[in-house]
Write a protein that binds this DNA or RNA. Structure first.
Lengths: 124, 124
DNA sequence: ATTTAAAAGCGACTATGTCGCATTATTAGG
DNA sequence: CCTAATAATGCGACATAGTCGCTTTTAAAT
């Protein structure tokens, strides 16, 4: 199961990198220059998540957004920072703030999904 | 726009109360004794949210879960506590832990959606 | 009883995301 | 450089979640 380099992967990653914020599949499809199948985009994105290149955030609209991992290694890839979804410009960005929590004994946390919704700096 | 009491409303609220945890539309439809249309269930749930009776949580499956509000008045109904979604028993519960965060200047937060995913106490 | 408007039912519709299968293309090995 | 293996893509179909418009029903005020 070794990964191969394909134009599709490069195009997807380039779009997300250029955007500088989390993107949904449809946003990526809209921004990308070449024509890529929807299912393929999802597969590429999920593979990037497995590889620790991207992380997935579920916003309040129930959609999946994918953001670049910044300094996440494979072993310690819990993306425990807040995300901010602006209701005006519709963008979802990673905030530097870490999520701190303590959970009751016996619970085993595998994933953290924290999204703040409101109006971002630019739009207010 | 005054609210009316209907069997549907009572049935929905009773199911959620009895469950003691957040529920999705399909779970409610499955547990409920009378036959209620899907769209109606959503409308009832959203009305309860407007009235501050329930609050809505988006889990990692992208689905909406509705949980009873505990001590939330209408003016201060930010549900800034963590939620825990168990991947084994599939339930979503409210944790007592409050969400604490500080956001960069200029951002205006309207809603908080924090969900931890993993294995709950009972299932581990 | 009558009225009125909120609530429910019904059907249709729009995503979003996934899956299976056939086809294409990357990459390693000779 | 050619070939084989298999990862990646395209395509179609599908499942599910949630919404909307319109008609009908029903709660509740007068």
């Amino acid at each position: 199961m070794k990964r191969r380099n394909t134009p599709t992967k490069e195009a997807v990653l380039s779009v997300i990198t250029k955007a500088g914020q989390a993107m949904s599949q449809d946003a990526i499809e809209g921004e990308i220059s070449i024509d890529i199948n929807r299912a393929t985009i999802y597969r590429v994105l999920n593979r990037f998540c497995e590889d620790g290149v991207l992380h997935k955030v579920i916003a309040e609209d129930g959609k999946q957004y994918f953001a670049l991992c910044d300094g996440c290694d494979k072993t310690h890839q819990k993306h425990q920072h807040f995300h901010f979804k602006c209701t005006v410009c519709e963008t979802l960005e990673c905030l530097p703030n870490e999520v701190n929590f303590s959970i009751p004994r016996g619970y085993h946390v595998e994933n953290v999904n924290c999204v703040l919704t409101g109006v971002c700096k630019k739009c207010s």
